[in-house]
Amino acid sequence: MYPSLVSGGGRREARLCAVTGGRGFMARHLVAALLRSGDWRVRITDLGPEAALSPAEDDGLLGAALQDGRAAYVSVDVCELAQLTKALEGVHTVFHTASADHTKNNFQLHYKVNVEGTKNVIEACNTCKVKKLIYTSSSGVVFDGVHGLFAVDESTPYPDKFPDAYTETKAEAEKLVIKANGINELLTCCIRPGSIFGPGDTIVPILVSYGGMMIIIGDGKNCDDFVYVENVVHGHLCAEKTLSTKDGANRSGGKAYFITNLEPVNLWDFVYMVLGELGYKSRFRLRIPSYLVKPITCLLDWSYNNIFSLYGMRQPGMLTSASIKYATLNRTFNCNSAAEQLGYKPIVPLKEGVKMTTEFYKWSRT
Rank of each mutant, 00 (worst) to 15 (best):
S303K: 08
L278S: 05
L292P: 04
R283K: 14
P289V: 10
R287G: 03
R283H: 10
E277P: 01
P264W: 03
L267W: 01
V265T: 12
R287H: 12
R285S: 13
D269P: 00
L299Q: 05
T297H: 10
L286S: 04
L286Q: 07
L286E: 03
V271G: 01
W302G: 09
P264I: 05
W268C: 01
R287M: 09
I288E: 08
R283M: 08
S303Q: 11
I296Y: 12
Y291S: 14
G279F: 02
P289L: 12
I296A: 15
E277I: 01
R283D: 13
F284I: 14
P264S: 05
V274E: 00
M273V: 00
C298F: 10
L286C: 13
L267T: 08
I296N: 09
F270C: 01
V293D: 10
T297L: 08
K281F: 06
V265M: 09
K294R: 15
Y280S: 04
L286R: 07
W268I: 00
F284V: 15
M273Y: 04
V274C: 02
G276C: 03
E277R: 10
D301W: 07
P295F: 09
N266T: 03
L300G: 05
I296F: 15
F284D: 06
S303R: 07
K294E: 14
R285W: 02
L300W: 06
G279M: 03
V293A: 15
L267N: 07
S290T: 11
V265L: 10
V271D: 02
P264Q: 07
V293C: 15
D269I: 05
L300E: 09
L299D: 01
T297Y: 12
P289H: 11
D301N: 11
L292F: 15
L275N: 04
L299K: 03
S282R: 04
V271H: 05
P289S: 11
P295G: 11
S303P: 00
E277Y: 10
L275A: 03
V271R: 06
F270G: 00
Y291P: 00
K281A: 12
R287Q: 15
V265Q: 08
E277D: 12
I296Q: 11
V271F: 07
Y280T: 04
I296W: 11
L275K: 05
S290F: 03
K281R: 13
W268D: 00
V293Y: 10
I288Q: 09
K281D: 08
S282N: 07
R283T: 14
L286D: 04
L267E: 05
S303I: 07
D301E: 12
T297I: 09
I288R: 10
E277S: 08
T297E: 07
S282M: 04
P264C: 07
Y291N: 10
T297F: 15
L292T: 07
V271T: 08
P295H: 09
W302Y: 15
R283Y: 05
L275Y: 02
F270S: 00
L292Y: 14
L275H: 01
R283V: 06
Y280K: 03
E277V: 01
S282W: 03
D301R: 08
P289N: 11
F284P: 00
V274A: 00
P289M: 09
L267S: 06
I288T: 09
V274F: 01
M273I: 01
C298K: 14
V293F: 13
C298L: 15
R285I: 07
L292H: 05
